[in-house]
């Protein structure tokens, strides 16, 4: 029974981590692009991004996950794992957009002004002056988003992806030890979230500028 436990929970953990690792880069790329479009993309793009963000963040992730899953799975032939991961990344992109937008705004117009004053183009200024500062500022809220994505990855359970929770359910059925099975699932999540937080705290300290508050 113990061996069963380890195999099931171990493979579930691997799937959970994979889903999170697949969803996160997508969330970063989309989120950062949307944030840049929102701030530097002109009036119409900016409005469009506001609407996108409001709509995405106003609906429960599980509902969006279902909608996106059915859209993705209906149009291309793709496994639940990938459909779930893409959907999860997509949902996260709206939240990450707000994180990056907040960081870009708090770097402020003064930095842009100073960069333009020495003859940089708008894009060069964003690339070499604003972004390096904004990305550092974004680390604490972004770390928080990482643990949210990690926890939300449990939602792909509903799509039949064999992540930790699904494995716990199977274990519970075979061993008749529901408390042990789900308790272990909770413990694994706690360890994952805890370790991730520690790692990202470390990253934040490493990248911090001297005397930056």
């Amino acid at each position: 029974m113990l061996q069963n436990f380890i195999i099931y929970i171990g493979s579930g953990t691997a799937v959970t981590v994979s889903v999170t690792l697949a969803a996160l880069p997508m969330g970063i790329v989309l989120g950062l692009s949307f944030a840049l479009l929102h701030i530097y993309g002109g009036k119409w793009l900016s409005r469009l991004m506001t609407v996108y963000s409001t709509l995405m963040r106003g609906v429960p992730p599980i509902v969006l996950l279902f909608i996106l899953y059915f859209i993705i799975a209906g149009s291309i032939n793709i496994s639940p794992f990938w459909a779930g991961s893409i959907a999860l990344g997509w949902v996260s992109s709206a939240y990450q957009m707000e994180i990056f937008r907040g960081a870009l705004l708090s770097v402020g117009g003064g930095q842009m002004l100073a960069a333009r004053a020495i003859g940089m183009s708008r894009w060069t200024a964003v690339r070499y002056v604003v972004l390096p500062q904004a990305l550092r500022l974004a680390i604490p809220p972004w770390s928080n988003e990482v643990s949210i994505v990690l926890k939300d990855s449990s939602l792909v359970y509903a799509l039949g992806v064999p992540e930790i929770l699904r494995r716990a359910q199977q274990l519970s059925a075979t061993t008749q030890q529901p408390f042990l099975a789900y308790g272990t699932a909770a413990l694994i999540y706690f360890i994952l979230v805890f370790t991730t937080n520690r790692l990202l705290d470390h990253l934040e300290q490493r990248t911090r500028l001297p005397a930056q508050l």
């Binding site: 926890k151 449990s154 929770l165 529901p178 789900y182 999540y189 979230v193």
Partner: peptide, 17 residues
């Protein structure tokens, strides 16, 4: 530090154990 869904399953399916 743990997902709501896992907490829900632990309480609904796990606690009877």
């Amino acid at each position: 530090g743990t997902p709501l869904l896992v907490q829900l399953f632990l309480i609904y399916y796990g606690f009877p154990g």
